[in-house]
Amino acid sequence: MLKLSNETKVGILTVVGITLLVLGFNLLKGKSLFKRTKTIYAVYTQVNGLQPSNAVQVNGLVVGNVANLDVMDKNAGRILVTLTITKKIEIPRNSVARISSDLLGSKTVQLDLGNSGEYLQSGDTVYAAVDGSMTDALKEQLNPLVKKLQGTLMNIDSVLLNVNGLLDSTAKGHLHQAIGNLEVVTRNFTHTSASLNTLLDHNGAVAGTMNNLQDVTANLKNSNEKISAILDNAEKATGSLANGSIDTTLAALQATAASLNATIAKLNTTDGTAGMLLNDKQVYNNLQYSLSNLNKLLEDLRINPKRYVHFSLFGKKDKIRPIPSDSVKAQ
């Protein structure tokens, strides 16, 4: 069996370690040693914090990564960015590599594919563009507002200077007096609001009124069925009156009233028997006299019945007795 010296073992371990270190470093940088990749370049004047291993995307899909960033002149006016494409995609020659950032500030290179029929090969250069950062966008939006605000503040300053010049000592005194009156009004308003709070309190008058109103509405709600029944009965009654022969009945009542008026008119005159009985005094006297004679006849019949009915087995006649009075009046 072949024996290895310690120096050989150390050498082999060193080579394996260096190999693993290179592989690990490349993997951390996003490079793959076992995949076929395509390398393209882009030249920028600024990269907005782009770093190696940042993603390269096409329509949101990660197709590669940033391999390296190199300075092309002493002033760093031109920066060469190396892009490694790991996906098998064709990139048109008129495509644009655009540096963009999300809300968290992460930088990516977005490949906006063009419509050319020619495609980039490994080692070719793609057009470069840089999106403005969110800070730049905010600055662009805020700059007009800042300018307007500055102009407004200058106008306010001018107005205050003019007002200060117009207000002499007398006007300032009046202004202080007006402010004092405003303080009194504010105090009165505070008292008024306190009074309103007292009225609107749980035990206040308004609360009691609302409670009473609630009780009334509750009673109305509880009596809703009764009210509905009353309204139904009223509707039925009015319907019956509307559907019935009310016009004919009213006409008959009017005719009866007319006949009654005519009868009463005749009774008030001496035309006819009833009228003469009611209005002729002589008829009343004769009737009274007849009644008096009839009373006498009935009294005589009671006292002397045998004068009018004679019945005797022996033929003896009773004496005729006079009636107690000839002036008996009708009772």
Rank of each mutant, 00 (worst) to 15 (best):
D215V: 00
K148C: 07
N94E: 09
N26C: 00
S101C: 00
S292K: 11
D232I: 06
E140G: 13
L297K: 06
A76M: 06
L200F: 15
D215M: 05
G117E: 08
R78P: 06
L153R: 09
T256L: 04
L160Q: 05
A262I: 05
R98Y: 02
N268M: 14
S5W: 07
P324Y: 09
L83K: 14
L21Q: 07
I230A: 00
A76Q: 05
V184I: 13
G173L: 14
G239T: 11
K329R: 08
N197E: 10
S95H: 00
N162T: 15
A137G: 11
D112T: 08
S133K: 06
A218K: 09
P144T: 13
L104V: 03
N224G: 01
K87I: 03
S240D: 14
F314P: 00
L250N: 05
T273R: 07
L231I: 09
K87P: 00
V130Y: 04
N143M: 12
N94K: 05
K316V: 10
H176F: 04
T19K: 02
M1G: 14
A258L: 14
P52G: 01
K236S: 09
K88M: 12
E235A: 09
E225K: 11
L294V: 14
H310D: 03
Q150I: 04
V309D: 11
D318T: 15
S228G: 00
N68H: 13
L153K: 10
K107S: 06
V126Y: 01
T45Y: 05
E140V: 13
N6L: 07
S325Y: 05
V56N: 07
E299F: 02
T198Y: 12
D73M: 13
V58W: 07
T192D: 05
N197K: 07
V216Q: 05
K266L: 12
M134W: 08
G105E: 11
D102R: 12
S325K: 10
K3I: 15
K172Q: 12
I230L: 03
D300I: 10
G123N: 05
I12V: 15
N222D: 10
V56Y: 02
S32W: 08
N115F: 06
Y127E: 12
A242S: 09
D136V: 11
K296G: 04
K139W: 12
T86F: 06
V328E: 07
L175V: 06
L277D: 04
L80C: 06
K266T: 09
G11P: 03
V309F: 12
A234P: 02
K139I: 04
K148P: 03
L138E: 09
T273H: 01
K296N: 08
L267T: 01
I91S: 01
L167A: 03
K306I: 00
T249Y: 13
N65A: 08
L166G: 05
K266R: 10
L20C: 05
T135C: 02
P305C: 03
N75E: 14
T249A: 15
L291W: 01
G49F: 12
D157P: 00
Q141N: 10
L138Y: 03
V58L: 10
K9F: 12
P52E: 14
N279Y: 02
